[in-house]
């Protein structure tokens, strides 16, 4: 396998695993995926001994790949956990959402959206899987993790190149 893909796969998987640990997320916050990208660049540099300097473009691409892998694995873990437990944060927040909705005078569009939420919630509770929910969480993860992965890639390139030049 290409060294770029392998380093990104390893660190992306690691970041995805760490996102499932509740306590850790409260410490690492938005820095988990960028840190994974920095590790990816470090790993890539170690696996290419002849490489003196990493181009910023390569670093950003490595970060992007790390973000993509992290998003896919994190979404996969969540879908599997939802399938096994037949519950997730959507189910947990439904009573509170319904309570909030009852206190408001909502229009037609909002009523339709409640129906969609209820339908997703029912699907998860009965079969453990909702296609719409899975698509939405994967898309959300892909957007945020790739942005933060690329930023981490740019930072990681600067850090590792500076270390090499020292």
């Amino acid at each position: 396998m290409n060294k770029k893909y392998l380093a990104s796969l390893v660190c992306g998987f690691g970041a995805a695993v760490l996102t499932t640990i509740p306590g850790l997320e409260s410490i690492a916050c938005c820095l988990l995926v960028p840190i994974a990208s920095i590790f990816t660049i470090g790993l890539y540099k170690k696996s290419s001994p002849g490489l003196l300097r990493i181009q910023t473009g390569t670093g950003v691409i490595l970060g992007l790949l790390t973000g993509i892998f992290a998003a896919l694995f994190a979404s996969g873990f969540e879908i599997i956990l939802t399938y096994i437990t037949k519950s997730n944060d959507l189910i947990a927040s439904m009573p509170q959402t319904e309570k909030l909705i009852n206190g408001m005078n909502l229009g037609e569009a909002a009523k339709e959206s409640i129906e969609i939420l209820k339908q997703m919630s029912n699907e998860i509770q009965t079969t453990g899987f909702s296609l719409l929910y899975s698509i939405l969480i994967t898309l959300g993860n892909l957007i945020t993790y790739t942005i933060f992965g690329m930023l981490g890639g740019a930072v990681g390139t600067a850090i590792i190149n500076k270390r090499s030049s020292n």
Binding site: T97, L100, I101, A110, F148
Partner: peptide, 18 residues
């Protein structure tokens, strides 16, 4: 006031913050 948007906006930012 749209609970669907409300939920997914919160869910979107939950990937980068606890």
């Amino acid at each position: 006031e749209n609970p669907f948007i409300n939920y997914f906006l919160k869910r979107f930012y939950s990937t980068v913050c606890h």
